[in-house]
Design a binder for these strands. Structure first.
Lengths: 204, 204
DNA sequence: ACCTGAACACCGTTCAAGT
DNA sequence: ACCTGAACACCGTTCAAGT
């Protein structure tokens, strides 16, 4: 790593700096979270380290702890941002369910991240609310079951995608592993929601 | 919920020979996996390191790589052992589903481990087969949806338990978070399986 | 066949100190 | 208010070498 020792000859007065090379690099909670979210999408959850995020921001790892108490808190913020995209007003359960799944799919390992960091406050989550309003009053148990199914399904599907992309499947029967996964999703959602199964997908 | 405690008879007093310097300590794949599984139950998935497993076996970390190519392979073996307990012959879907869930609950973070390491071969897993036979022929999509629900639900429930035990919930509404979780499980299973909802539980 | 010892390239986190 | 620098106690993994 390129270390410059002749610091004092350029003597940039670090006040309102504008050039991107000499970095006063003042960040806040939002810029850290945004960099981390972008990095998540590039490297995946397993390789998303505090040190890597810091490097991306041109900052020492310890600097992150000014903005977040620990890694878990940062991950929770990322989970919040991923689920924030879920629209809340839809009346069709299947539409709501698909939009939740697609929000999780929008970032690499998004489902796994939300599943593992979001467990505590799922009852009051954006996703749960959206599902409850789609299902109607007094259906919080159904909404919870639906959310558990969506998270399980999305996490499994995403793990499978990732495994396929950088290694061959170990299975003997090779009949396209991800095919029919959308059908499984629709079947599960319709069954738990208590609606009459198949409805055409709005695909391109 | 009928939990089998027969799991913990693997305490293995390893100081049968007391000399710490001259260590015969010969292990094989099975003894390593058993020690790792016991340690998982004690410390949880996040703290289950190769170095800790090695220490438990009175062995250098590098010794583990004689028996397993890497940590992922060892974790996959643990997932296999956890799901191996699932009985295959039950005709009642609800019974099968509960036995899968209970197998996951039998070890700390069992559901999360199986969910994250088992994604590839779930289609040919013990659990999938058991569900398919319970559901009858031509129901592999339903069985898959069921498995996704069970894994998502169990992982969430287990994460929630763990979070509660060593820290207070952050939620404002405090009406017992885990209550009703069994009802959610039964509701989801019955709906996806296509059976008529409630059936009495075999509780103690 | 199974393990040691030493190394390599990493982690998350803390904390005094700087600006 | 925000960051550096240095430390601490860890990681997974490799590999020559021992027995």
């Amino acid at each position: 790593m390129l270390v410059l020792n002749t610091v004092h000859l350029n003597a940039v007065h670090y006040s309102e700096c504008m050039s991107p090379e000499h970095n006063p690099a003042r960040h806040d909670r939002d810029s850290v979270a945004r960099a981390a979210l972008a990095l998540l999408d590039e490297v995946g959850l397993a390789d998303l380290s505090m040190r890597r995020i810091a490097a991306r921001l041109d900052v020492q790892p310890s600097a992150l702890y000014w903005h977040f108490a620990n890694k878990q808190e940062l991950l929770a913020e990322l989970a919040d941002r991923i689920t924030a995209r879920i629209p809340a007003g839809a009346s069709d359960v299947l539409v709501t369910a698909r939009s939740i799944r697609d929000a999780l799919f929008a970032y690499r390992d998004g489902a796994e991240l939300v599943l593992s960091t979001y467990a505590l406050r799922l009852g009051s989550s954006h996703a749960q609310i959206a599902l409850e309003t789609s299902l109607g009053a007094g259906s919080s148990e159904r909404a919870t079951a639906l959310l558990h199914f969506i998270l399980g399904h999305a996490a499994l599907a995403q793990l499978r995608m990732h495994a396929e992309s950088h290694g061959a499947a170990a299975s003997a029967d090779e009949i396209d592993p991800t095919a029919g996964l959308d059908a499984v999703f629709d079947l599960g959602v319709a069954a738990i929601a208590g609606v009459s199964a198949s409805q055409p997908r709005d695909r391109a």
